[in-house]
Design a protein around this nucleic acid. Structure first.
Lengths: 186, 186, 186, 186
DNA sequence: TATGAATGAGTCTTCATTCAT
DNA sequence: AATGAATGAAGACTCATTCAT
């Protein structure tokens, strides 16, 4: 029955993820989550005390899935390419993207700061890749952390633009190439 | 009478601006706007049909005030400095900032796309400055529009970060110096 | 319109009084009060924030109406008779009695202690009557306050009995005669 | 099995008694009873059909424990003293007192009338003690039943006062001494 | 016997919007 | 042009009760 609970939670999260993806965070009601999740109004409260709690589970799953962008293996250039490819996917993702919900939640200022964790994690991974690239002579960067932050700002900006007035795949590519060109030791 | 109406609208917008600044877009109710604006519940409907219409007037004023970043005079380097100084102010602004409301509104996908207009406007101004700098030999840039977009992404990313998990003045400065260094013809 | 508000409040209190009288305090919902008071669900909240607030207004009116048991004029024996006659009415009252609601509210321990105020008020009035009777030689009482308390306990006990398993008018009379006989200076 | 059932019932009643003592009758939910009684939600329904049925078992045990106030032996004065000492205990009892729940239940008018049975039982015991005291010349009482009822009203009033706005031990003593003094054949 | 997940009705509360004045 | 009382439709949450296991 712990088993059954987990299954139910899975179902709820699946539906909830779809809802948060479609409606963002602030506009989502318990009813929204309930309808279609094959569960009753009251039943949802057996698993979650409110929308925020549901959202936390959903967003943690989402961010965890976004994260493993660094294989940890390969040359720095390869690792960077993998990282940026994943980021591009995240920027362009239509279905199931929780970016809007994430921003609405973060703006609301309540609860955990997933955006900060996400940003910091990106900076950490990226600066490590850049630093090792500098060591190997593949990259040039007077300040790997600064360059990592710089790239994260760019990616953040593109994610926002993608969710509001859209972005084309080619635009993302263009920016990515630019980032790489700056790091490439000429 | 038309006169008096305009005065009333001014009053409403003033209060509404404060409310949207504090609570974002989605969480604002007609009551929020009414209370303190010196107008009655019903009276608000004589001027606006709902929160969205109020918001549109508010945000248009806000964005207009953010815009005049290019004096149009001076050397390209000076014009760029002015532009970026204004952008920095906008990023760091605490009181009266409508960034959160703007993003929530844009995410919601209804109505006019203020973010696109704002972004495009920035790209236009900036690319023009860069292009003239290239002409004068002050700047180097193989593709002024691309560089302008690049800078706008960075600025957008910083605005978001500032509203969610905070940004320090020195971080903004660091990024701005970096942008300038890239443009400077070495 | 202050006028209209007051009228509306009157209407609400009238209906609410009937409801509290019939269902006690704990079982009463906002819906109970709303239905029949000629007001909408939401409308009630314009006047009261919840059942407790309504109850307070209702019970204060009720207790005020129960109180003026002492005319303050006449001989002590006459004043005592008047006081006890009023108390008897209160004990036997069927329609509109708020005793049950009062006890449920007092038991719940939240908010103001109307029972204590009511009891103390009774002791005060009664002991004053007895004391003046002792002065005039009509009554004998070694300790007027003690006798007043004694009588209030009896009355309280009878009120409770009346609301739970009933009391007959003759039983009340019998007890009242007994009280008087104890005070009468033989 | 019947054995085991009885054990389960014991457990339920123990916990339920604590709950009713703390929250009265009307505010108690099945969840309240279930939690801590070491029984499941559904399991409770195997023994009881709802809170009222549980309450009936609980209150019957409580009243039975309150009752054996008359040892049936000793002089009438001794028996009276024992009776009143037990009543005083009941009035002042803090932990485990079910008076509030009893009144709430009785007021609600559903089900058996425990208060009546309790009151009548008291009158019966007391009038019998008084009558035998009159026979032996220890007491004087023109109407033992009337005096018994009188005392029961006083005790009832004090129990109520104790549960609502409190009573001091000395107040109870004072009233008890008064009762005795009235009965004492001068 | 026993479990505890699940249901759905009921209650509280808020809010956009209307309307008589 | 202006008021603010009033409405009714959501939305959040709780609870007695049922039911598959």
């Amino acid at each position: 029955m712990g088993e059954r609970s987990e299954n139910k939670k899975e179902l709820i999260l699946e539906k909830a993820s779809e809802v948060f993806s479609r409606k963002g965070y602030l506009g989502v009601t318990m009813s929204d989550i309930v309808s279609g999740a094959g569960i009753s109004r009251g039943g949802l409260y057996l698993y979650y005390t409110g929308t925020e709690e549901v959202f936390r589970d959903v967003i943690e799953g989402y961010l965890a899935a976004c994260r493993p962008a660094d294989p940890g293996a390969g040359t720095p250039a390869e690792r960077l390419a993998v990282f940026l490819r994943e980021q591009k996917k995240r920027i362009l993702r239509k279905k199931g993207s929780l970016e809007r919900a994430l921003y609405e939640y973060s703006f609301s200022g309540q609860g955990k700061d997933y955006m900060k964790a996400d940003f910091d994690e990106g900076v950490r991974t990226l600066s490590e890749i850049i630093a090792s690239g500098v060591d190997s002579g593949e990259f040039q960067s007077p300040d790997p952390v600064r360059d990592a932050e710089n790239i994260m700002y760019l990616l953040l900006g593109m994610r926002i633009k993608a969710r509001t007035f859209g972005i084309r795949s080619s635009e993302v590519d263009s920016e990515i190439l630019y980032m790489i060109s700056l790091l490439a030791s000429s």
